[in-house]
Design a binder for these strands. Structure first.
Length: 482
RNA sequence: CGGGGCGUAGCGCAGUCUGGUAGCGUAUCGGUUUUGGGAACCGAGGGUCGGAGGUUCAAAUCCUCUCGCCCCGACCA
């Protein structure tokens, strides 16, 4: 056990220093590198490939549910940003401004988008005039700048990539349905593809999006016991339509303000992948989202280029034809052992080894990244065997993470229990809440934990609010967060 | 924005206390032998010691100022 952990060098142990481990893995796996600007990172090709896979899959899901992509400008005039009062107040501290055009000061300064509600709503006001124009469901894949004080690669950077969906509807009910259906897409995607279990729920008023009526969220638990908000879906009500004048004439010939939603997930998802699945040897990527699902390492000895390589190439083509993302590492400049370590750092779920002994026995060696289990399998039916192994790894990662979540979810019935659990064990604390903002304050002040989600289904085991003792209205999850 | 840590070869670091020829590991380049868990040996290249100013015969080292990065908090996806 101890010995195997040392195959990969130069990564701090996950159990020793979690933060350091996290940044070590990102650097060693070449996901990202620090850029010469404070809080800004370069997403390197390997990291970007993961983002592309996330993007492609979500994009299909959005399009299948009637959304279209568009592109709105990076720069937002200050006057537009100021139209929705709560919105500007929420974002003001982290907006970056353009004040000069060449050497001339601008008459009105321009915000670099911290989110695009303002610019998009200003356009929606032009485009929406009739109930026939609704619903309008547009998404964009883009970059965002928020001047954050503390940054960490993927989890919080000054500039990041995301998708933001912005929809307008004819009724409150329809907007609510849209908000919830997107929440469901996020949940499905994160669990099925990223193999990360999620908790969905509503944000309390103190945590909701600036300008929203309601914010639903997807929360995920990280190995250090902190909760990471992995996605949000906001029901904006008529707050923005009133501020921006998005009105339509309904079927009864009355003017009405549109009901809106907005929702997004970011490159932060990559950070979650790293933390949830990785180990002391580096990344472990779920097959569904891994840029390389299988790496073929030919054992290079003697006349391997004449004997082993041709067979490795045959296998490569067969797997590729069967839609397995595979690469053949035929570099003769590195030894097999070096390659093993390298691909482990990069989290490739299955390694396929092919050497002289295997050639003789008409077999290959399949190595599972999770536990380094070796299986000698016949070349015949390889595609089937491999697909099964990939599926097993995918489900093993999810069930492993689920088991961890279950073990880190604690029940608390009083304020002191909540604080005690947060301080000694961290993790998620399930408790009851009366709904008053006053009752969130002591937990935040004493344990710096907040309500991460108000659960859809109240748990009947709770008889009173943990803080004030009044009748509970909600079952909630308290946790420290990223 | 508070607390702590760190800037020396691509990367990881020693050297700083006590000033005196800028080093180690790894990576890189060339050569030979190797290759089933990061190969071995021989040789080579690579530095304005984060920046500016000062003290000194002499500064990576001492003093002053400054910039940047990381970690932990408070705030945010």
């Amino acid at each position: 056990m101890e010995k195997t952990d040392d195959f990969v060098k130069q990564i701090t142990k996950k159990s020793e220093d979690f933060s350091r481990w996290y940044t070590d893995v990102i650097k060693r796996a070449k996901l990202a590198d620090y850029a010469p600007i404070k809080g800004v990172m370069v997403i390197r090709p390997y990291g970007y490939e993961i983002w592309e896979l996330i993007r492609d899959q979500l994009d299909r899901m959005f399009k299948d549910t009637g959304h279209q992509n568009a592109y709105f400008p990076l720069l937002i005039p200050e006057s537009l940003l100021k139209k929705e009062a709560e919105h500007v107040e929420g974002f003001a501290p982290e907006v970056a401004w353009v004040t000069m055009g060449g050497s001339e000061p601008l008459e009105e300064r321009l915000a670099i988008r911290p989110t695009s509600e303002a610019i998009i709503c200003s356009m929606y006001a032009k485009w929406i005039k009739s109930w026939r124009d609704l619903p309008l469901k547009i998404n964009q894949w883009t970059n965002i700048v928020r001047w954050e004080k503390v940054t960490r690669p993927f989890l919080r950077t000054t500039e990041f990539l995301w998708q933001e969906g912005h929809t307008a509807h004819a009724s409150c009910k329809e907007a609510e349905e849209e908000t919830l259906s997107i929440l469901e897409i996020y949940k499905t995607f994160i669990e099925k593809y990223l193999a990360i279990p999620v908790i969905t729920g509503l944000k309390s008023d103190s945590e909701k999006f600036a300008g929203a009526l309601k914010t639903y969220c997807v929360e995920t638990l990280m190995p250090d016991g902190k909760s990471l908000q992995a996605g949000t879906s906001h029901h904006l009500g008529q707050n923005f339509s009133k501020a921006f004048g998005i009105r339509f004439e309904n079927k009864n010939q009355e003017l009405e303000y549109a009901w809106q939603t907005s929702w997004g997930v970011t490159t932060r998802l990559i950070g979650a992948l790293v933390m949830v699945h990785g180990d002391d040897s580096g990344l472990i990527l779920p097959p569904e989202i891994s840029p390389v699902q299988t790496v073929i390492v030919p054992i290079s000895r003697g006349d391997w280029k004449e004997t082993i390589l041709p067979q490795a190439e045959n296998i490569y083509h067969e797997l590729k034809q069967n839609n397995i993302r595979v690469i053949l590492d035929d570099r003769d400049t590195y030894t097999p052992g070096w390659k093993f370590s390298e691909w482990e750092v990069k989290g490739v779920p299955v390694r396929l080894e092919l050497g002289p002994k295997d050639l003789e026995k008409k077999q290959v060696v399949l190595v599972n990244r999770i536990n380094r289990d070796k299986k000698f399998v016949p070349v015949e039916n390889l595609v089937e065997t491999l697909k099964k192994l990939l599926a097993d790894i995918q489900s093993e990662l999810l069930s492993r993470a689920r088991a961890f979540n279950a073990s880190q979810t604690h029940i608390a019935r009083t304020e002191s229990e909540i604080i005690d659990i947060i301080e000694t064990r961290r993790g998620l604390v399930k408790t009851a809440w009366c709904g008053s903002p006053q009752c969130e304050i002591p937990i935040k002040e004493k344990a710096s934990a907040t309500i991460r989600a108000i659960l859809d289904q109240p748990d009947s085991q709770f008889e009173k609010c943990a803080i004030c003792g009044k009748a509970p209205r909600h079952t909630v999850i308290f946790a420290k967060s990223y």
